[in-house]
Each structure stands twice: as structure tokens, then as C-alpha cells.
């Protein structure tokens, strides 16, 4: 009886410490090591509540854009840990976490891995059913910082990009000049090869 109860409690703790809806990881062991922790848990009800306090009027286009985005979201969950020193978390643990997104409808959009010790690893995964996006997971594992974002619902990365520069959200767009330079270099390289 005690054992069964223990298993139930362990399952409940595991579910609570996960990042909701099938994305599990034991974050509780990282929090005590971190010097700064950010935890955001917004389910559908909380998103609806937040939406009520955002202006949908065209006069406040920043909030109107976010309010529009919220209509299709089911949940927003963030875990971010900043550590005083490098090596406070295991990259093997992060890889096990990433493994959840191999298959099961998840598509790997970006997967940058550094071979250097303490190098930065970044992954962007997108779950889609037909044309409809069901969720995005962003994993950013840096030397002294580990961040995981799980956004559930119909949202595309470019919609987040559209929010750049609004309400303190940093501008993530690459300048047209930078894009032009990349295109020029690419064309030049292809010409040289020919």
C-alpha cells in the first residue's frame, strides 16, 4: 500500500515538474543550483485572463497583436536557469530531454550543436498536424544558462518574430543588409566553383 502511494506521489511530482503535456524533465534538481530561475506556467485559463487585460483596439497595436496571437494558444511554459559557473547541468540530461522530440509528430527546425566542451546547443522543434501547428519547443543550452520554452497551440516562429520590438520583446529580425551580404557571398562562392 505504502509502495503504491509512493509511486503515485512520484508520478504526481514528476508530472508537476515537467513542462506540461508530454514534455517531461526533472527541473527540480536544477533550481537549487541556479542563481536565477524563471518559471512561467500559463495554461489556457491564464492565457484567457491575460488576454482580457490586453487592449484589442487598433490604437494599441502591440497588445492587439499579442491578443490576436493568444486566441490560438493553449499553454505557454518556460523554464530558464542561469548558473554562476559552467557545468552545473548535464548535457546528457538535455540530450535525453531532446530525444522526446524525435518523432511523435515533432519536426526538428533548428539543431545547432557545438563539439566544444561547454559549447552552445540550440534546438527548435515544431509539432504540426497538416497545416496546423500544434506547438513549438525551443531548447537553448549555453555554458551557464539552460532555457526551455514550450508553446502549445497554433503558432509559428514567424508570428513570434512579428512581435519583435513590441512590449519589450527584442527585435530578432536579421537586417536586410546582412541578408544581402549572405546572398552576395553565396552567389560569389557558386560562381567561383563554376
Amino acid at each position: 500500500m505504502k509502495r503504491t502511494l509512493g509511486i503515485i506521489i512520484a508520478m504526481a511530482v514528476s508530472a508537476a515538474s515537467g513542462l506540461a503535456q508530454g514534455v517531461d524533465f526533472d527541473w527540480s534538481k536544477l533550481a537549487p543550483k541556479a542563481v536565477e530561475t524563471v518559471e512561467v506556467n500559463l495554461d489556457r485559463n491564464m492565457l484567457e485572463l491575460a488576454s482580457k487585460f490586453m487592449s484589442g483596439k487598433s490604437g494599441n497595436s502591440d497588445e492587439a497583436a499579442i491578443k490576436d496571437l493568444l486566441q490560438n494558444l493553449k499553454g505557454v511554459y518556460v523554464r530558464s536557469f542561469r548558473f554562476a559557473n559552467a557545468g552545473e547541468y548535464s548535457i546528457a540530461d538535455v540530450d535525453r530531454f531532446r530525444a522526446q522530440f524525435n518523432g511523435g509528430g515533432w519536426n526538428k527546425i533548428v539543431d545547432v550543436r557545438s563539439s566544444k566542451a561547454g559549447g552552445e546547443n540550440t534546438g527548435v522543434y515544431l509539432k504540426a498536424a497538416g497545416d496546423e501547428v500544434q506547438g513549438i519547443v525551443v531548447i537553448a543550452a549555453e555554458a551557464r544558462e539552460l532555457t526551455v520554452v514550450n508553446i502549445q497551440g497554433n503558432i509559428r516562429p514567424d508570428q513570434i518574430q512579428k512581435l519583435s520590438g513590441k512590449l519589450g520583446i527584442p527585435d530578432i529580425s536579421i537586417s536586410d543588409e546582412a541578408k544581402k551580404q549572405i546572398r552576395q557571398r553565396s552567389t560569389k562562392k557558386n560562381d567561383d566553383e563554376e
Binding site: V40, L70, V78, T147, V149, I169, P170, I172
Partner: peptide, 9 residues
């Protein structure tokens, strides 16, 4: 929500 979008961005 805004914090989450900032971090995501």
C-alpha cells in the same frame, strides 16, 4: 506572458 515571449524571442 510578455516575459515568456521575451525569452522565446
Amino acid at each position: 506572458l510578455i516575459l515568456a515571449l521575451q525569452i522565446t524571442s
